[in-house]
Design a protein around this nucleic acid. Structure first.
Length: 429
RNA sequence: GGAGAGAUGCCAGAGUGGUUUAAUGGGACAGUCUCGAAAACUGUUGUGCGGGCAACUGCACCGAGGGUUCGAAUCCCUCUCUCUCCGCCA
């Protein structure tokens, strides 16, 4: 949620940013509505406070009068207090209504894009910031997309996934399952070496947590929901991990807080169809290692760069061709100020697939979560939150299988061998 | 799932309707003393929303939300969580 202060002091920048996101003129008008409501809120608050002050003073007097045995005078004052209370009740109700209206507006306002975010409406308009290589792999005759390779080597059983759960819940087995486990370990180990503390969080969260990182109310339809216990299955480790510091004041010296966590992720992906969901291109349950930073506002963009370098290093080490996109205003997530997407080349499908998204949320999440630090002047300030996938597994698996297929089998990158214990996938296990 | 007890500040812990401005102890920080440190002594020690150029000041907050009352940490209701015992269980 945007800070009221930013809306007031940097209104032009906010409006310009919203235009970049392609918000309708009606929604741009919400900014002025919010400021107007906040003015009202202040005024009513001031009136209410002074009424309550009067009430408190008179109540003290009543107490004293009773002590002195002047019951009659005390009872006279009671009537007066009653009148004040009636007025205060009216103001209190008005204040609540104003706050509700203001909140309703604020939750519909997205984050303000960073100055470097490109103009644009669709994924076509994203800026290719860097591409690892111009040379995309040539595949031999008879090469296959990953769903055929997965069947050939018995790595993933889609039919069993369907019969056990439903479509979009693949069952990995044999070398497929072992490769998943190896990738998780490799990614966690790399993050740990880069200074991230490993977290194994709950994968069901309550509404307050889902609200903190912005999944609620904006993306409610994206999450699985357990009605009986009023809990949500997480769509990413970002949700529980970032919320570790909700409502906390973090000592400035311990910034940046660097956290990593592996979790399964659950996404309903309602409305997806076609070749996008073929194989494991898009599934309802997948595994991901996430990196999260809670940083000082003055260095958060350096931290973002560090996270991009970390992900790029992972991709390089896996010897996979990739490109980094700077997302345009229209394609960027609701809560983000600047997002870089990593896409891997899947040679079997001749397609770029998103494998990581690295974002700086500035104070958008921390304002909701009341996540703060105390600066050297003793003043309390909101932190910046950042996160990125490092990495999401299914599409990495897609690229590993498709790009590395040979007539002799699938050859894995060297760096994974210590984690898998095998270099080739040649036969069904 | 059943029965009972509880939730107070950074921590421990008192407080059962009106100087509560939340006692007391510990911790942390600052000052005095010291070459320096320890000890001792003195002081400070929350958050949010307002007002004020500022010194300062108003309101709210004792798990959360309601209620009773002129007045609530304190009384009542609902919820959440923790602990103890029983049941179940990897």
């Amino acid at each position: 949620m945007l800070e009221m202060q930013i809306l007031r002091d940097q209104k032009e920048r906010v409006l310009e940013g919203f235009r970049k996101r392609g918000l309708s003129p009606e929604r741009l008008g919400l900014v002025d509505q919010a400021i107007k409501l906040d003015d009202d809120r202040k005024e009513v608050q001031t009136q209410l406070d002074s009424l309550l002050n009067e009430r408190n003073t008179l109540s003290d007097e009543i107490g004293n009068l009773f002590k002195q045995g002047k019951g009659a005078e005390a009872n006279q004052l009671k009537a007066k207090v009653q009148e004040i209370k009636d007025n205060a009740d009216t103001l209190e109700k008005r204040l609540q209504m104003i706050k509700t209206d203001l909140d309703a507006i604020l939750v519909t306002l997205p984050n303000v894009p960073h100055i470097s975010v490109p103009e644009g409406k669709t994924p076509e308009d994203n800026l290719v910031y860097k591409q690892s290589t111009e040379k995309l792999p040539d595949l031999p005759q008879g090469s296959m997309p990953h769903w055929d390779l997965a069947e050939k080597y018995n790595l993933i059983d889609f039919k069993l996934g369907v019969s056990i759960t439903g479509s979009g819940f693949p069952l990995y087995r044999g070398f497929g399952a072992r490769l998943q486990r190896a990738l998780i370990n490799y990614f966690l180990e790399q993050a740990r070496e880069a200074g991230y503390e490993e977290i194994l969080p709950p994968i069901l969260v309550n509404a307050e947590t889902a609200y903190g990182t912005g999944q609620l109310p904006d993306k409610e339809a994206q999450m699985y929901y357990v009605e009986r216990d009023d809990l949500y299955l997480i769509p990413t480790a970002e949700v529980p991990v970032t919320n570790m510091y909700r409502n906390q004041i973090i000592p400035e010296a311990s910034l940046p807080v660097k956290l990593t966590g592996y979790t399964p992720c659950f996404r309903r992906e309602a409305g997806s169809y076609g070749s996008d969901v073929k194989g494991i291109n898009r599934v309802h349950q997948f595994d991901k290692v996430e990196i999260v930073q809670i940083g000082h506002p003055s260095t958060s963009y350096e931290a973002l760069q560090g996270m991009i370098d970390h992900v790029a290093h992972l991709m390089d080490s896996l010897e996979l061709p990739y490109r980094i996109l700077r997302l345009c205003g229209g394609d960027m997530g609701f809560t983000s100020a600047l997002t870089y997407d990593f896409e891997v080349w899947a040679a079997g499908q001749q397609k770029w697939l998103e494998v990581s998204s690295v974002s700086n949320f500035e104070t958008y999440q921390s304002n909701r979560m009341k996540m703060r630090y105390r600066d050297d002047k003793g003043k309390i300030q909101l932190v910046h939150t950042l996160n990125g996938s490092a990495l999401a597994l299914p599409r990495i698996l897609v690229a590993l299988l498709e790009n590395n297929q040979t007539e002799d089998g699938i050859k894995l990158p060297k760096v994974l061998v210590p984690y898998t214990g095998f270099e080739w996938i040649r036969v069904k296990e």
